[in-house]
């Protein structure tokens, strides 16, 4: 009786190679946050608005890191800045630029409060950002 396990002269079938190749050529799964996107939801949903999504990539095209992390005083650690809407309206944090002078003003609530309900505060990244770090 034919038993493939007894066939000592086996080689890898071209079909199998083909399968493996096709599998690796499959596109990576879509549905990833952009690298270094930050979700802010310490206060947002509790206050009845969507979580904030802060896109690092968008801002670094327009500003160097030091503008926010030196001049504006944002600590480089998620959760280390107690960002409240009251402080922003008072011209602190995001409010230093989002004041209709440097950038559009605070009446555009939903441009920042744009996240899906239930998101947890933290730094995201579609590509290799999910390490063990305490960012």
């Amino acid at each position: 009786m034919f038993n493939p396990l007894q066939n000592t002269n086996r080689r890898i079938s071209p079909s199998v190679l083909f399968l493996v190749a096709v599998t690796f050529l499959l596109p990576a799964s879509s549905g990833m946050a952009e690298y270094a996107d930050v979700v802010l939801n310490r206060h947002a949903e509790a206050e009845g608005v969507r979580p904030v999504i802060y896109p690092h990539w968008f801002h670094r095209i327009r500003f160097r890191c030091k503008v926010c992390h030196h001049e504006l005083g944002f600590e480089m650690k998620v959760g280390a800045n107690d960002i409240t809407m009251a402080a922003i309206l008072d011209g602190k944090f995001c409010g230093m630029c989002h004041n209709e002078e440097t950038a559009w003003g605070l009446e555009h609530c939903h441009r920042c409060h744009s996240g899906l309900p239930g998101l947890k505060t933290g730094i995201r990244g579609g590509d290799k950002a999910g390490g063990p770090g305490d960012y």
Partner: peptide, 17 residues
């Protein structure tokens, strides 16, 4: 993307990377 809410009123205004 598991992040943005397509129902958000400004969803269409945001620049895409």
């Amino acid at each position: 993307d598991g992040l943005h809410d397509p129902q958000g009123p400004s969803f269409g205004e945001l620049q895409r990377p």
